[in-house]
Design a protein around this nucleic acid. Structure first.
Lengths: 188, 188
DNA sequence: AAGATATGTCAATATGGTTGACGTAAATTC
DNA sequence: GAATTTACGTCAACCATATTGACATATCTT
Protein backbone atom coordinates (compact mmCIF):
# COMPACT_ATOMS: atom_id res chain seq x y z
CA UNK A 1 0.00 0.00 0.00
CA UNK A 2 0.93 3.56 -0.44
CA UNK A 3 2.36 6.00 2.02
CA UNK A 4 -0.22 8.68 2.51
CA UNK A 5 1.40 10.57 5.32
CA UNK A 6 2.45 13.49 3.20
CA UNK A 7 -0.26 15.76 1.97
CA UNK A 8 -0.08 18.27 -0.77
CA UNK A 9 0.13 21.88 0.18
CA UNK A 10 -2.49 22.62 -2.44
CA UNK A 11 -5.12 20.64 -0.63
CA UNK A 12 -4.05 21.28 2.91
CA UNK A 13 -6.56 23.97 3.72
CA UNK A 14 -9.62 22.02 2.66
CA UNK A 15 -8.55 18.90 4.45
CA UNK A 16 -7.84 20.82 7.59
CA UNK A 17 -11.32 22.21 7.52
CA UNK A 18 -12.83 18.79 7.07
CA UNK A 19 -10.54 16.86 9.40
CA UNK A 20 -12.66 17.02 12.50
CA UNK A 21 -15.03 14.31 11.35
CA UNK A 22 -12.72 11.42 10.54
CA UNK A 23 -10.25 11.57 13.37
CA UNK A 24 -7.62 9.67 11.41
CA UNK A 25 -4.70 12.04 10.98
CA UNK A 26 -2.61 9.47 9.14
CA UNK A 27 -4.99 9.23 6.20
CA UNK A 28 -7.21 12.24 5.71
CA UNK A 29 -9.95 11.42 3.24
CA UNK A 30 -9.74 13.31 -0.04
CA UNK A 31 -13.22 14.75 0.37
CA UNK A 32 -12.53 17.32 -2.29
CA UNK A 33 -11.69 14.90 -5.08
CA UNK A 34 -14.34 12.41 -3.96
CA UNK A 35 -17.10 14.97 -4.20
CA UNK A 36 -15.83 16.78 -7.26
CA UNK A 37 -15.77 13.45 -9.06
CA UNK A 38 -19.32 12.75 -7.99
CA UNK A 39 -20.70 16.06 -9.26
CA UNK A 40 -18.56 16.14 -12.38
CA UNK A 41 -19.69 12.67 -13.39
CA UNK A 42 -23.29 13.39 -12.45
CA UNK A 43 -23.44 16.32 -14.84
CA UNK A 44 -21.25 14.65 -17.44
CA UNK A 45 -23.54 11.65 -17.87
CA UNK A 46 -26.60 13.85 -17.42
CA UNK A 47 -26.00 15.65 -20.69
CA UNK A 48 -27.05 12.79 -22.98
CA UNK A 49 -30.15 11.87 -21.01
CA UNK A 50 -32.60 14.12 -22.82
CA UNK A 51 -31.45 12.94 -26.23
CA UNK A 52 -31.56 9.32 -25.15
CA UNK A 53 -35.10 9.82 -23.91
CA UNK A 54 -36.16 10.94 -27.36
CA UNK A 55 -34.82 7.70 -28.79
CA UNK A 56 -36.51 5.66 -26.08
CA UNK A 57 -33.12 4.61 -24.77
CA UNK A 58 -31.35 4.75 -21.44
CA UNK A 59 -27.77 5.05 -20.31
CA UNK A 60 -27.23 1.35 -20.81
CA UNK A 61 -27.91 1.74 -24.53
CA UNK A 62 -25.53 4.66 -24.67
CA UNK A 63 -22.68 2.68 -23.16
CA UNK A 64 -23.20 -0.26 -25.48
CA UNK A 65 -23.50 1.64 -28.73
CA UNK A 66 -20.65 3.92 -27.72
CA UNK A 67 -18.12 1.15 -27.24
CA UNK A 68 -19.32 -0.80 -30.24
CA UNK A 69 -18.87 2.26 -32.38
CA UNK A 70 -15.49 3.09 -30.96
CA UNK A 71 -14.10 -0.42 -31.15
CA UNK A 72 -15.63 -1.98 -34.25
CA UNK A 73 -15.67 -5.74 -34.24
CA UNK A 74 -15.95 -5.90 -30.48
CA UNK A 75 -17.05 -9.30 -29.25
CA UNK A 76 -19.89 -9.77 -26.81
CA UNK A 77 -17.44 -11.06 -24.22
CA UNK A 78 -15.32 -7.91 -24.59
CA UNK A 79 -18.36 -5.78 -23.99
CA UNK A 80 -19.17 -7.71 -20.86
CA UNK A 81 -15.65 -7.09 -19.54
CA UNK A 82 -15.88 -3.38 -20.25
CA UNK A 83 -19.34 -2.82 -18.83
CA UNK A 84 -18.93 -5.26 -15.95
CA UNK A 85 -22.44 -6.62 -16.27
CA UNK A 86 -23.85 -10.07 -16.97
CA UNK A 87 -24.69 -11.32 -20.42
CA UNK A 88 -28.37 -11.55 -19.48
CA UNK A 89 -28.39 -7.89 -18.64
CA UNK A 90 -26.51 -6.96 -21.77
CA UNK A 91 -28.77 -9.20 -23.83
CA UNK A 92 -31.90 -7.11 -23.57
CA UNK A 93 -30.22 -3.82 -24.36
CA UNK A 94 -28.15 -5.29 -27.17
CA UNK A 95 -31.19 -6.95 -28.72
CA UNK A 96 -33.03 -3.64 -28.83
CA UNK A 97 -30.10 -1.92 -30.51
CA UNK A 98 -29.87 -4.76 -33.04
CA UNK A 99 -33.62 -4.82 -33.73
CA UNK A 100 -33.77 -1.09 -34.24
CA UNK A 101 -30.76 -1.05 -36.53
CA UNK A 102 -28.17 0.79 -34.47
CA UNK A 103 -25.85 -2.20 -34.40
CA UNK A 104 -25.21 -5.19 -36.65
CA UNK A 105 -23.31 -8.37 -35.95
CA UNK A 106 -21.18 -10.64 -38.09
CA UNK A 107 -19.81 -14.06 -37.29
CA UNK A 108 -16.09 -14.11 -36.68
CA UNK A 109 -14.09 -15.64 -39.51
CA UNK A 110 -11.48 -17.34 -37.40
CA UNK A 111 -14.02 -18.39 -34.78
CA UNK A 112 -17.55 -18.51 -36.04
CA UNK A 113 -19.02 -18.74 -32.55
CA UNK A 114 -18.13 -15.12 -31.97
CA UNK A 115 -20.56 -12.35 -32.83
CA UNK A 116 -18.55 -9.32 -33.83
CA UNK A 117 -20.44 -6.10 -33.28
CA UNK A 118 -20.49 -3.02 -35.50
CA UNK A 119 -22.35 0.26 -35.31
CA UNK A 120 -24.45 1.17 -38.33
CA UNK A 121 -24.60 4.70 -39.73
CA UNK A 122 -27.66 5.19 -37.55
CA UNK A 123 -25.69 4.04 -34.52
CA UNK A 124 -22.75 6.25 -35.40
CA UNK A 125 -25.00 9.26 -35.71
CA UNK A 126 -26.43 8.66 -32.26
CA UNK A 127 -23.03 8.20 -30.69
CA UNK A 128 -21.77 11.33 -32.41
CA UNK A 129 -24.66 13.40 -31.14
CA UNK A 130 -24.16 12.22 -27.57
CA UNK A 131 -20.39 12.58 -27.71
CA UNK A 132 -20.91 16.09 -29.06
CA UNK A 133 -22.75 17.13 -25.94
CA UNK A 134 -20.10 15.70 -23.68
CA UNK A 135 -17.32 17.15 -25.79
CA UNK A 136 -18.89 20.58 -25.48
CA UNK A 137 -18.77 20.26 -21.72
CA UNK A 138 -15.18 19.04 -21.76
CA UNK A 139 -14.03 21.80 -24.10
CA UNK A 140 -15.79 24.39 -21.97
CA UNK A 141 -14.04 23.03 -18.91
CA UNK A 142 -10.63 22.87 -20.58
CA UNK A 143 -10.91 26.25 -22.27
CA UNK A 144 -8.35 28.01 -20.11
CA UNK A 145 -6.03 25.11 -19.45
CA UNK A 146 -2.56 24.80 -20.88
CA UNK A 147 -1.61 21.70 -22.89
CA UNK A 148 0.62 20.62 -20.03
CA UNK A 149 -2.28 20.84 -17.60
CA UNK A 150 -4.56 18.93 -19.96
CA UNK A 151 -1.95 16.22 -20.19
CA UNK A 152 -1.79 16.00 -16.41
CA UNK A 153 -5.57 15.69 -16.21
CA UNK A 154 -5.54 12.77 -18.63
CA UNK A 155 -2.70 11.17 -16.74
CA UNK A 156 -4.66 11.48 -13.50
CA UNK A 157 -7.80 9.89 -14.91
CA UNK A 158 -5.69 7.14 -16.38
CA UNK A 159 -4.00 6.55 -13.04
CA UNK A 160 -7.37 6.16 -11.35
CA UNK A 161 -8.14 3.06 -13.42
CA UNK A 162 -7.49 -0.49 -12.24
CA UNK A 163 -4.56 -2.22 -13.88
CA UNK A 164 -5.17 -5.64 -12.42
CA UNK A 165 -6.84 -7.30 -15.36
CA UNK A 166 -7.29 -4.71 -18.04
CA UNK A 167 -9.72 -5.82 -20.69
CA UNK A 168 -9.05 -5.45 -24.39
CA UNK A 169 -10.62 -2.04 -24.74
CA UNK A 170 -8.83 -0.72 -21.71
CA UNK A 171 -5.49 -1.90 -23.02
CA UNK A 172 -6.03 0.17 -26.15
CA UNK A 173 -6.99 3.23 -24.16
CA UNK A 174 -4.15 2.97 -21.69
CA UNK A 175 -1.77 2.21 -24.55
CA UNK A 176 -2.82 5.37 -26.34
CA UNK A 177 -2.46 7.41 -23.19
CA UNK A 178 1.07 6.25 -22.55
CA UNK A 179 1.96 6.61 -26.22
CA UNK A 180 1.07 10.26 -25.92
CA UNK A 181 3.45 10.78 -23.03
CA UNK A 182 6.43 8.66 -24.05
CA UNK A 183 6.26 9.10 -27.79
CA UNK A 184 5.70 5.50 -28.75
CA UNK A 185 3.24 4.95 -31.56
CA UNK A 186 0.82 2.32 -30.45
CA UNK A 187 -1.92 2.33 -33.01
CA UNK A 188 -4.22 -0.60 -33.67
CA UNK B 1 -7.23 -9.82 -35.92
CA UNK B 2 -9.72 -10.41 -38.67
CA UNK B 3 -10.56 -8.48 -41.77
CA UNK B 4 -12.38 -5.84 -39.82
CA UNK B 5 -10.24 -2.77 -40.27
CA UNK B 6 -12.98 -0.30 -40.90
CA UNK B 7 -11.90 1.80 -37.95
CA UNK B 8 -10.41 4.62 -40.00
CA UNK B 9 -13.43 4.74 -42.25
CA UNK B 10 -15.68 4.73 -39.24
CA UNK B 11 -13.86 7.61 -37.65
CA UNK B 12 -13.97 9.67 -40.83
CA UNK B 13 -17.65 9.19 -41.38
CA UNK B 14 -18.28 9.93 -37.75
CA UNK B 15 -16.54 13.26 -37.91
CA UNK B 16 -18.52 14.14 -40.99
CA UNK B 17 -21.72 13.40 -39.17
CA UNK B 18 -20.47 15.33 -36.19
CA UNK B 19 -19.87 18.42 -38.28
CA UNK B 20 -23.32 18.21 -39.78
CA UNK B 21 -25.17 17.83 -36.50
CA UNK B 22 -23.24 20.38 -34.51
CA UNK B 23 -22.53 23.00 -37.15
CA UNK B 24 -18.99 23.33 -35.85
CA UNK B 25 -16.52 22.11 -38.46
CA UNK B 26 -13.61 21.80 -36.05
CA UNK B 27 -14.92 19.96 -33.03
CA UNK B 28 -13.49 16.48 -32.79
CA UNK B 29 -15.03 14.49 -29.96
CA UNK B 30 -12.81 14.17 -26.89
CA UNK B 31 -12.92 10.38 -26.97
CA UNK B 32 -9.95 10.21 -24.63
CA UNK B 33 -11.49 12.18 -21.79
CA UNK B 34 -14.92 10.66 -22.33
CA UNK B 35 -13.62 7.13 -21.97
CA UNK B 36 -11.08 7.84 -19.25
CA UNK B 37 -13.86 9.39 -17.20
CA UNK B 38 -16.01 6.31 -17.73
CA UNK B 39 -13.35 3.87 -16.58
CA UNK B 40 -12.03 6.04 -13.79
CA UNK B 41 -15.49 6.48 -12.33
CA UNK B 42 -16.36 2.82 -12.85
CA UNK B 43 -13.41 1.73 -10.74
CA UNK B 44 -13.76 4.61 -8.31
CA UNK B 45 -17.32 3.75 -7.32
CA UNK B 46 -16.54 0.05 -7.56
CA UNK B 47 -14.24 0.17 -4.56
CA UNK B 48 -16.95 0.53 -1.90
CA UNK B 49 -19.24 -2.12 -3.36
CA UNK B 50 -17.89 -5.09 -1.41
CA UNK B 51 -18.10 -3.26 1.89
CA UNK B 52 -21.59 -2.01 1.13
CA UNK B 53 -22.66 -5.55 0.34
CA UNK B 54 -21.59 -6.68 3.80
CA UNK B 55 -23.88 -4.05 5.30
CA UNK B 56 -26.74 -4.98 3.01
CA UNK B 57 -26.55 -1.58 1.37
CA UNK B 58 -26.11 -0.33 -2.17
CA UNK B 59 -24.63 2.73 -3.78
CA UNK B 60 -27.76 4.73 -3.04
CA UNK B 61 -27.18 4.28 0.69
CA UNK B 62 -23.57 5.32 0.27
CA UNK B 63 -24.49 8.57 -1.44
CA UNK B 64 -27.08 9.45 1.18
CA UNK B 65 -25.03 8.72 4.28
CA UNK B 66 -22.00 10.34 2.71
CA UNK B 67 -23.62 13.71 2.13
CA UNK B 68 -25.48 13.64 5.43
CA UNK B 69 -22.22 13.02 7.23
CA UNK B 70 -20.35 15.65 5.31
CA UNK B 71 -22.98 18.33 5.61
CA UNK B 72 -24.59 17.81 9.02
CA UNK B 73 -28.06 19.25 9.33
CA UNK B 74 -28.80 18.76 5.66
CA UNK B 75 -32.50 19.00 4.89
CA UNK B 76 -34.35 16.38 2.90
CA UNK B 77 -34.91 18.90 0.15
CA UNK B 78 -31.18 19.62 -0.05
CA UNK B 79 -30.46 15.96 -0.42
CA UNK B 80 -32.96 15.70 -3.25
CA UNK B 81 -31.21 18.55 -5.06
CA UNK B 82 -27.81 16.96 -4.67
CA UNK B 83 -28.81 13.45 -5.66
CA UNK B 84 -31.27 14.54 -8.35
CA UNK B 85 -33.81 11.90 -7.45
CA UNK B 86 -37.41 12.02 -6.27
CA UNK B 87 -38.44 12.04 -2.65
CA UNK B 88 -40.18 8.69 -3.08
CA UNK B 89 -36.94 7.16 -4.24
CA UNK B 90 -34.95 8.78 -1.47
CA UNK B 91 -37.59 7.78 1.06
CA UNK B 92 -36.93 4.07 0.94
CA UNK B 93 -33.17 4.38 1.28
CA UNK B 94 -33.36 7.07 3.93
CA UNK B 95 -35.85 5.08 5.99
CA UNK B 96 -33.50 2.10 6.06
CA UNK B 97 -30.61 4.26 7.20
CA UNK B 98 -32.80 5.79 9.91
CA UNK B 99 -34.20 2.46 11.07
CA UNK B 100 -30.76 0.89 11.29
CA UNK B 101 -29.30 3.83 13.15
CA UNK B 102 -26.89 5.29 10.63
CA UNK B 103 -28.74 8.59 10.51
CA UNK B 104 -30.93 10.55 12.91
CA UNK B 105 -33.20 13.50 12.25
CA UNK B 106 -34.18 16.53 14.28
CA UNK B 107 -36.86 19.08 13.61
CA UNK B 108 -35.54 22.43 12.53
CA UNK B 109 -35.72 25.10 15.18
CA UNK B 110 -36.58 28.02 12.96
CA UNK B 111 -38.87 25.91 10.77
CA UNK B 112 -40.21 22.85 12.47
CA UNK B 113 -41.46 21.29 9.25
CA UNK B 114 -37.90 20.59 8.27
CA UNK B 115 -36.18 17.33 9.17
CA UNK B 116 -32.50 18.03 9.62
CA UNK B 117 -30.36 14.97 9.04
CA UNK B 118 -27.27 13.92 10.97
CA UNK B 119 -25.02 10.90 10.76
CA UNK B 120 -24.60 8.86 13.94
CA UNK B 121 -21.25 7.47 15.04
CA UNK B 122 -22.26 4.30 13.24
CA UNK B 123 -22.94 6.27 10.09
CA UNK B 124 -19.68 8.17 10.38
CA UNK B 125 -17.74 4.95 10.73
CA UNK B 126 -19.29 3.57 7.56
CA UNK B 127 -18.59 6.74 5.59
CA UNK B 128 -15.03 6.82 6.87
CA UNK B 129 -14.43 3.23 5.81
CA UNK B 130 -15.77 3.82 2.31
CA UNK B 131 -13.98 7.14 1.92
CA UNK B 132 -10.79 5.40 3.00
CA UNK B 133 -10.96 3.01 0.08
CA UNK B 134 -11.55 5.79 -2.38
CA UNK B 135 -8.88 7.94 -0.79
CA UNK B 136 -6.38 5.13 -1.18
CA UNK B 137 -7.10 5.03 -4.90
CA UNK B 138 -6.85 8.80 -5.21
CA UNK B 139 -3.57 8.95 -3.31
CA UNK B 140 -2.16 6.14 -5.39
CA UNK B 141 -3.15 8.00 -8.53
CA UNK B 142 -1.74 11.32 -7.30
CA UNK B 143 1.44 9.86 -5.90
CA UNK B 144 3.75 11.33 -8.53
CA UNK B 145 1.91 14.56 -9.22
CA UNK B 146 3.15 17.99 -8.23
CA UNK B 147 0.94 20.25 -6.11
CA UNK B 148 0.44 22.46 -9.12
CA UNK B 149 -0.80 19.53 -11.15
CA UNK B 150 -3.11 18.41 -8.36
CA UNK B 151 -4.54 21.89 -8.25
CA UNK B 152 -5.18 21.77 -11.99
CA UNK B 153 -6.96 18.44 -11.65
CA UNK B 154 -9.28 19.83 -9.03
CA UNK B 155 -9.90 22.89 -11.12
CA UNK B 156 -10.80 20.71 -14.10
CA UNK B 157 -13.27 18.59 -12.15
CA UNK B 158 -14.78 21.73 -10.75
CA UNK B 159 -15.12 23.22 -14.22
CA UNK B 160 -16.99 20.13 -15.41
CA UNK B 161 -19.84 20.85 -13.01
CA UNK B 162 -22.99 22.75 -13.96
CA UNK B 163 -23.19 26.27 -12.59
CA UNK B 164 -26.74 26.95 -13.65
CA UNK B 165 -28.54 26.38 -10.38
CA UNK B 166 -26.01 25.12 -7.88
CA UNK B 167 -27.63 23.55 -4.85
CA UNK B 168 -26.54 24.37 -1.34
CA UNK B 169 -23.97 21.61 -1.06
CA UNK B 170 -22.48 22.44 -4.40
CA UNK B 171 -22.10 26.07 -3.46
CA UNK B 172 -20.02 25.05 -0.48
CA UNK B 173 -17.84 22.78 -2.58
CA UNK B 174 -17.31 25.27 -5.38
CA UNK B 175 -16.74 28.01 -2.87
CA UNK B 176 -14.00 26.03 -1.20
CA UNK B 177 -12.45 25.11 -4.54
CA UNK B 178 -12.25 28.67 -5.78
CA UNK B 179 -11.10 29.91 -2.39
CA UNK B 180 -8.31 27.39 -2.61
CA UNK B 181 -7.13 28.59 -5.99
CA UNK B 182 -7.60 32.33 -6.07
CA UNK B 183 -9.80 33.41 -3.23
CA UNK B 184 -12.29 35.03 -5.56
CA UNK B 185 -15.85 34.11 -6.39
CA UNK B 186 -16.13 32.14 -9.56
CA UNK B 187 -19.17 33.12 -11.59
CA UNK B 188 -18.21 31.87 -15.06
C1' DA C 1 -15.67 -38.52 -29.49
C1' DA C 2 -15.35 -35.64 -25.52
C1' DG C 3 -14.92 -31.43 -23.51
C1' DA C 4 -14.48 -26.52 -23.36
C1' DT C 5 -15.95 -22.06 -25.08
C1' DA C 6 -19.02 -18.20 -26.96
C1' DT C 7 -23.30 -16.96 -27.11
C1' DG C 8 -28.39 -16.95 -26.46
C1' DT C 9 -32.44 -17.59 -23.67
C1' DC C 10 -36.02 -18.59 -20.00
C1' DA C 11 -37.36 -17.52 -15.42
C1' DA C 12 -37.34 -15.43 -11.06
C1' DT C 13 -35.77 -11.73 -8.27
C1' DA C 14 -33.60 -7.25 -6.44
C1' DT C 15 -32.37 -2.42 -6.54
C1' DG C 16 -33.21 1.95 -7.43
C1' DG C 17 -35.35 4.95 -10.15
C1' DT C 18 -40.12 7.13 -12.04
C1' DT C 19 -45.13 9.46 -11.90
C1' DG C 20 -49.31 10.51 -9.62
C1' DA C 21 -52.29 11.07 -5.80
C1' DC C 22 -53.10 12.14 -1.27
C1' DG C 23 -52.26 13.54 3.82
C1' DT C 24 -50.40 16.27 7.63
C1' DA C 25 -48.16 19.70 10.05
C1' DA C 26 -46.34 24.09 10.08
C1' DA C 27 -45.23 28.44 8.04
C1' DT C 28 -46.78 32.41 5.31
C1' DT C 29 -50.01 35.48 3.27
C1' DC C 30 -54.30 37.86 2.80
C1' DG D 1 -58.31 34.05 11.59
C1' DA D 2 -58.82 31.83 7.23
C1' DA D 3 -56.64 30.52 3.16
C1' DT D 4 -52.73 29.11 0.93
C1' DT D 5 -48.24 27.45 0.40
C1' DT D 6 -44.39 24.69 1.86
C1' DA D 7 -41.77 20.53 3.66
C1' DC D 8 -42.18 16.19 4.18
C1' DG D 9 -44.21 11.44 4.25
C1' DT D 10 -46.68 7.68 2.13
C1' DC D 11 -49.36 4.52 -0.85
C1' DA D 12 -49.51 2.38 -5.26
C1' DA D 13 -48.17 1.22 -9.76
C1' DC D 14 -44.70 0.94 -12.87
C1' DC D 15 -40.09 0.89 -15.32
C1' DA D 16 -35.06 0.21 -16.29
C1' DT D 17 -31.40 -2.26 -15.27
C1' DA D 18 -29.08 -5.25 -12.73
C1' DT D 19 -28.66 -10.10 -10.48
C1' DT D 20 -28.42 -15.67 -10.13
C1' DG D 21 -29.24 -20.11 -11.98
C1' DA D 22 -30.35 -23.39 -15.38
C1' DC D 23 -30.23 -24.91 -19.83
C1' DA D 24 -29.56 -24.97 -25.28
C1' DT D 25 -26.78 -24.59 -29.42
C1' DA D 26 -23.10 -24.09 -32.26
C1' DT D 27 -18.39 -24.34 -32.71
C1' DC D 28 -13.61 -24.86 -31.50
C1' DT D 29 -10.00 -27.71 -29.13
C1' DT D 30 -7.99 -31.88 -27.54
Amino acid sequence: MVDVNSKDAASRSLETIQRQSSGDPAKPPRWDIIELLFFAYRDFVGDPDDVLDQFGFGRAHHRVVHFVHRYPGLKVADLLDVLRITKQSLGRVLKQLLDEGYIVQKSGEADRRQRLLFATAKGEALVAQLAGLQTDRINRALKDFTPVEVEAIGRFLSAMIDRNDPDKVLQVILGQASAKTDGRTNKT
